[in-house]
Amino acid sequence: MGLLTNLKDSISRVTDGLFAADEPKRIGIYGPPNAGKTTLANRIARDWTGDAVGPESHIPHETRRARRKENVEIERNGRKVTIDIVDTPGVTTKVDYKEFLDHDMDKDDAVRRSREATEGVAEAMHWLREDVDGVIYVLDSTTDPFTQVNTMLIGIIESQDLPALILANKTDLPGSDVQQIANAFPQHETIPLSALEGDNMDEVYTKIAEYFG
């Protein structure tokens, strides 16, 4: 009986390993607009594949369609993790074209961007429901993390039992407050970084391998 159980476990481990090798985990990079999600996605993609994922911008909702970079192979401490990175549009509960007017944009373009941003949020939520195996949640550490969007998204991620890594981005900026983010979500580990400067990326990769490997 014990022999049979051991054999079964062995087969199970082998098949799990095979599936794991065949199908990279799909990791969604989520967060509010302008948190630095695309900057992080580009940083990861450039570091491990040499390519970028999409254009970065200081104008909110630059990413209005989910972009995927497949088969990003991250090697950490002798361990290889292959993931698909999904850079998602910033999630928000309100989109107003007027916020784009300050960025040298005429009204028509602003209205169009607003509509596309709304579609992007819908897409991001759809991906969260259907298509991601884990989440990297990116927050701007210079802003207040206690928002409806953050609370709701983290709640959804937890309810799905998805592995989630919370990143406190923009630590290179003067107003950065990593502790505030750690306090907001004490049930999760918070990793500080500057995706723009590449600060603390080593720890980020270690945690990615640990959480999603």
């Binding site: 999630v91 928000t92 509960t93 309100k94 989109v95 107003d96 074209y97 007027k98 009204k107 602003a110 209205v111 607003s114 509509r115 709304t118 579609e119 949020v121 819908a122 897409e123 939520m125 759809h126 969260l128 429901r129 969007v149 709701m152 998204l153 959804i156």
Partner: peptide, 26 residues
């Protein structure tokens, strides 16, 4: 998704998450 006026939207994230159908474009 509530269209307040052209270019202004309010989104109910839970509803968007719960919906089976996926809103591709407005």
């Amino acid at each position: 998704i509530r269209i307040v006026s052209p270019g202004k939207y309010e989104l109910n994230l839970m509803e968007l998450y719960d919906r089976q159908e996926y809103i591709i474009s407005l």
